[in-house]
Write a protein that binds this DNA or RNA. Structure first.
Lengths: 146, 146
DNA sequence: TGTATACTCTACTATTATGATAGAGATTAT
DNA sequence: ATAATCTCTATCATAATAGTAGAGTATACA
């Protein structure tokens, strides 16, 4: 797994929305400013996240973005996989892979699968509700660093 | 962590040499043919591995490559890190990182560090001696698929 | 001492991914 | 109407990846 800037921005943005969950929509500009993300880049990322079913949008005045689901229903791993692709360090570790002559004899494949599993156990076991709680526990929301 | 072709080739090559440990040098051509690696690409990789202290070379007729250390003294993780870089999924998970305003408040950093640690525990806990043994246990050496 | 074999070194190239930027268009509250 | 806001497509610069090419150097052996 490698987290790109795009992935990093996506996670920070979802967290930003999670901290605002239940309230009015947040604008792209606000989200970009708070997490220090180039606005036009974030536009594209948010469109992606919308297509992925993670966020919803409202157009026009008082428009902005909202989470499409409760923070407790969004796992870290889901977002990462959607934005940055599979967590496997190499394609041959994937379940469906069959590119080698004899995958059963490859001693490395098992290791990459172990790594993938260990990674998944971590990222699929934490939701944005917990992440938001961690932030809130650290101090007033207006000072958070995401 | 992402394993590139270069990394994959490097690992397979070290394993190929581990299977031949104690014998005469193996030529680039042999290594390339056995693991289905483009010869000229493997040349460069082997020069890298030599600079990294993983292999030694003999020039001229009956020349070729040898492991610089016993397979039991070469860990998988060492080779991966040398060829493909740090295992951290994002730079901010590194020990020395200090790029953010306040890394202590970033809820993601801890997660990436957990992932890095879980990955390291796997790849730093297996040597090429064990990998070679796995191969040998699967059948005659001349049929191995690395 | 010549020559075949094999490693060494530097340069070059094609393709793709990444990280953006630009600008025109569509929607909506007031 | 109009200002604020999201939407969509195109474009671009840079770096990484995965090679390829070719001339040069060292060595065993006849």
């Amino acid at each position: 797994m490698r987290i790109t800037y795009k992935g990093d921005y996506a996670l920070k943005t979802i967290l930003g929305l999670a901290l605002h969950y239940g309230n009015s929509p947040t604008t792209i500009n606000d989200l970009a400013r708070r997490a220090d993300i180039p606005t036009k880049f974030l536009e594209q990322i948010l469109l992606d996240l919308k297509r992925g079913g993670f966020v919803e949008s409202r157009r026009g005045k008082i428009g902005g973005y909202l989470l499409a689901r409760a923070p407790s229903q969004i796992k870290l791993g889901e977002v990462i996989r959607f934005v940055d692709g599979p967590v496997e360090p190499i394609a041959c570790a994937g379940k469906k892979y069959s590119g080698c002559n004899d995958v059963y004899k490859c001693v490395f494949r098992k290791i990459w699968q172990d790594v993938s599993l260990a990674t998944s156990k971590i990222i699929d076991n934490i939701t944005f509700e917990e992440l938001a709680k961690n932030i809130k526990d650290k101090g007033p929301v207006y000072t958070y660093q995401i």
